[in-house]
């Protein structure tokens, strides 16, 4: 290629990219957190939700994986500037960036999951993880023969303490004498993806007498499920239905339907008529959280256990039983 064609191609391309960046795209955008799109956990659930939306509506969406924290505001402004609407982001690290950017694009609808940003064009989605965890806590305590149940969390943050606190309350409700073993995989985001450490923590819990261990640890939870299967005991999965991963050993999974939240957000927030700015809490009543029963675990759960869990579920929805939310006061009364 000679020089003049090269320069022509270059200037042509520059003009083209200038057009591309200026064009108004009405497609929605999904931005994943630093864990990456395929983290077998939270971000992947968001991705699956977007894919489900795509399959259901035939639309298309833009998405982006971040490389560092400095790119958060850049990515938001870039998508909003392109006309992407709505913009959905998953993760509690978005608070600062979204607080800064949302007022600059009053006509763009933003949806953020797991944190709260107070702006007229932002829908913040939170999950009642404590009530879902309460139900699996009830199931764990009823299943346990040793009277000891374990918990392996991912990163040691208030959100995961919220899971533990609900679980512990549920276990105590079903069996006031239950012993609880609480562990966290680590204090950095790497704790979401460290199945080896999480598996070791599960083994330690088994050594201390636990025969059911609840893994609220993202990708690290896979190590817990494996360790409990190897020990011939039971585990409880999290976020997605993980019952199929170790059939016969996974007692149930605490469902946190990030995928459903993303799918709904892409549909509802695209239109100002259906967009719901402000705080949306997904709980037991609207199936945002729950416990999973399918062919893989139906033999593990007795009718009495299901009945007890359903009973508590109805009482929690009706307000007869209140489950304490750890994040309201950073304390867990047991």
């Amino acid at each position: 290629m000679n020089f003049s064609t090269l320069t022509k191609a270059l200037s042509g391309g520059l003009a083209l990219s200038a057009i591309l960046t200026g064009v108004a795209l009405a497609d929605p955008a999904v931005i994943y957190d630093l864990g990456g799109k395929f983290d077998k956990s939270f971000n992947e659930a968001a991705y699956n939700g977007a894919e489900a939306w795509k399959a259901a509506t035939g639309g298309s969406f833009l998405d982006l994986e971040l490389q560092n924290d400095a790119q958060r505001e850049q990515a938001l402004r870039r998508f909003a500037g392109q006309g992407a609407n709505p913009i959905v982001m998953a993760g509690f690290s978005w608070t600062a960036a979204l607080t800064a950017v949302a007022p600059e694009f009053p006509d763009t609808n933003f949806v953020v999951i797991d944190t709260v940003v107070d702006a007229p064009n932002v829908q913040s989605i939170l999950f009642d993880e404590h009530t879902g965890s309460f139900l699996v806590g009830v199931l764990a305590a009823m299943k346990s023969e040793t009277g000891t149940v374990g918990f392996v969390g991912g990163m040691d943050v208030p959100l995961i303490h919220k899971f533990y606190c609900g679980y512990a309350q549920g276990a105590k409700a079903a069996n006031p004498d239950i012993k609880l073993i609480e562990n966290y995989t680590g204090t950095t985001p790497a704790a979401w993806n460290d199945p080896v450490t999480a598996g070791e923590l599960a083994k330690a819990a088994v050594d201390a007498g636990a025969d059911v261990v609840y893994a609220a640890a993202g990708g690290s939870g896979l190590g817990v499920l494996q360790a409990m299967k190897d020990a011939g005991k039971f585990s409880i999965g999290v976020d997605s239905n993980q019952n199929y991963l170790q059939p016969g050993s996974v007692l149930t999974s605490m469902l946190k339907r990030v995928d459903v939240a993303v799918q709904n957000a892409l549909t509802e927030a695209a239109d100002d008529a259906t967009f719901k700015p402000g705080l949306t809490v997904l709980g037991l009543a609207n199936d945002g959280v729950g416990y999973a029963v399918d062919d893989n675990n139906k033999d593990l759960l007795t009718p009495e256990m299901i009945a007890a869990a359903e009973d508590y579920k109805a009482k929690i929805i009706a307000g007869e039983v209140t489950v304490h939310d750890y994040t309201t006061d950073s304390a867990c009364p047991l």
Binding site: A9, L10, G13, L14, L16, S17, A18
Partner: peptide, 11 residues
Amino acid sequence: PFHAIQVILYG
């Protein structure tokens, strides 16, 4: 690749 390089330079 030419488009990619243009995008990088423009960006």
